[in-house]
Design a protein around this nucleic acid. Structure first.
Lengths: 145, 145
DNA sequence: ATTAAATAAGAATAAATAGTCTTAAATATG
DNA sequence: CATATTTAAGACTATTTATTCTTATTTAAT
């Protein structure tokens, strides 16, 4: 189940890397993040530009430049990042792609899907980057599922 | 949120059409279904081949041939169709695409996503084509959401 | 047998997504 | 000012998904 594009996955993971591995200086270089995460510098740069233009990151050019969270990690919610990278219509989809599925003419799974999407959106809107980064740093490993 | 491919969406909708609009004869022609649903005959044929090879449909060639449900609409679950068209690994994905996300090294949203996927899978496995087709025939329309 | 009506199979094309590359602009430092 | 470092912008390419097209096979009816 591919709920998110590669762009979103990389974007979120890169942000979590930034929060989990705070830099000494004000800005962290995209090159370093890409290297540590073993993904394309250019692709990450492109993703970060989107996050910058959406007010999630600040960027600064030149030596010692890079990117930095525009707000505290506590106040950046997963929802913000998902909407920035997937578009604001992310939660508007009809599960089965029925042509004019909506309030007036709901598809047969409309109600169910509406609730499922609302739950997901709710979770995203209540999950901050700091909360997720904490889990990474705590190295929460489960040996049995 | 694009949870399903176009293939799955069309496939499910076409099956629902078949259940909601039973034909006189044993088989219903793909051409008729495609025409009624206003989608490509060739594409639908391709999708139906997959459903046929997965034991969800029976097909018959020649005049008066076509496709027919291989089992009762009550016993074909949404899950069967989704797994047939999306693959059996549909519920195995990591939401954030973390490299070795799993029991031993869960990603920061692993537990949440595991539950969300299980809920969805559960719903799919408890929803039959007949249940959904009934809603279509009842023309359940909601004027307020 | 011949023809018409279907699906089967898969090649070919189009569109969307993912990823790479090149050039420009900004900034710090010697 | 010259140079090095870094992001910005967007063109370009590759891969995946979606869609169309062509040919083959099966079957019924005349």
């Amino acid at each position: 189940m591919k709920a998110l594009s590669q762009t979103s996955k990389y974007g979120i993971r890169a942000l979590l890397y930034m929060v989990a591995n705070p830099s000494q200086g004000e800005y962290m270089s995209i090159g370093e993040i890409a290297k540590e995460m073993d993904l394309s510098f250019h692709f990450l740069t492109k993703i970060f530009r989107e996050l910058t233009s959406n007010g999630i990151l600040n960027s600064y050019r030149g030596p010692a430049g890079g990117v930095a969270l525009a707000k505290s990690a506590e106040s950046i919610m997963l929802l913000d990042v998902v909407l920035a990278l997937e578009g604001n219509d992310y939660f508007d989809s009809c599960l089965l792609g029925f042509p004019r599925c909506g309030i007036a003419k709901p598809c047969p799974v409309h109600e169910f899907w509406k609730v499922a999407k609302a739950d997901l959106k709710d979770h995203f809107s209540n999950t901050s980057l700091s909360q997720l980064a904490e889990k990474i740093n705590a190295d929460e490993v489960r040996l049995y599922d």
